[in-house]
Simulated assay, not measured.
Amino acid sequence: MIAQPQPADCPLCSAAAERVRAAPRGYRYTCPSCGSFHISSVALRCRQDIPASAREDIRRLRAYGYTARIDIDRQHAVRVTPA
Rank of each mutant, 00 (worst) to 15 (best):
Ile50Ala: 04
Gly26Trp: 12
Leu12Gln: 00
Arg19Thr: 05
Arg55Gln: 13
Ile39Leu: 07
Asp57Met: 09
Ser36Thr: 12
Phe37Asp: 06
Cys46Arg: 14
Met1Asn: 02
Phe37Val: 04
Leu61Thr: 10
Pro24Cys: 08
Met1Thr: 03
His38Cys: 09
Val20Ala: 03
Gln4Lys: 12
Arg21Ser: 11
Arg28Trp: 09
Pro24Thr: 12
Ala23Ile: 03
Gly26Lys: 13
Ser36His: 00
Arg59Glu: 10
Arg45Asn: 15
Met1Ile: 01
Glu56Met: 08
Arg69Thr: 02
Val20Leu: 08
Ile70Thr: 06
Ile2Met: 09
Tyr27Asn: 01
Arg47Glu: 10
Thr30Pro: 00
Thr67Ala: 13
Gly35Lys: 01
Asp73Phe: 06
Ser14Thr: 13
Ser40Phe: 01
Ala83Asn: 05
Arg55Phe: 00
Gly35Thr: 05
Tyr29Ser: 03
Pro5Phe: 05
Met1Phe: 07
Gln6Leu: 11
Ile70Ser: 02
Arg74Gln: 12
Pro51Lys: 11
Gly65Phe: 06
Ala23Asn: 00
Val20Lys: 12
Asp71Cys: 07
Asp73Trp: 08
Cys13His: 05
Arg45Gln: 15
Ala8Val: 06
Met1Gln: 07
Tyr27His: 14
Leu61Glu: 03
Pro32Met: 08
His38Val: 02
Tyr64Trp: 03
Ala63Pro: 01
Glu18Ala: 10
Ile2Leu: 10
Gln48Arg: 15
Val80Leu: 03
Arg60Glu: 12
Ile70Leu: 15
Ser53Asp: 08
Arg45Leu: 14
Ser53Val: 04
Glu18Leu: 09
Ile39Trp: 07
Ala15Tyr: 01
Tyr64Thr: 12
Ile39Tyr: 04
Ser53Cys: 05
Arg25Thr: 11
Ala8Pro: 01
Gln6Asn: 01
Thr30Ala: 12
His38Leu: 15
Gln48Cys: 08
Ala52Met: 00
Val80Ser: 07
Ala54Ser: 15
Val80Tyr: 10
Ser41Leu: 11
Gly26Ala: 11
Pro7Cys: 07
Cys34Asn: 03
Ile72Ser: 06
Ala83Ser: 12
Ser14Asp: 08
Tyr66Asn: 13
Thr67Trp: 14
Arg21Gln: 14
Gly35His: 03
Ile50Gln: 02
Arg47Gly: 03
Asp73Ser: 05
Val42Ser: 07
Ser40Pro: 00
Ala77Arg: 15
Ile58His: 08
Ala43Phe: 10
Gly35Ser: 11
Arg79His: 06
Asp73Thr: 07
Arg21Val: 15
Ala17Cys: 14
Pro32Ser: 06
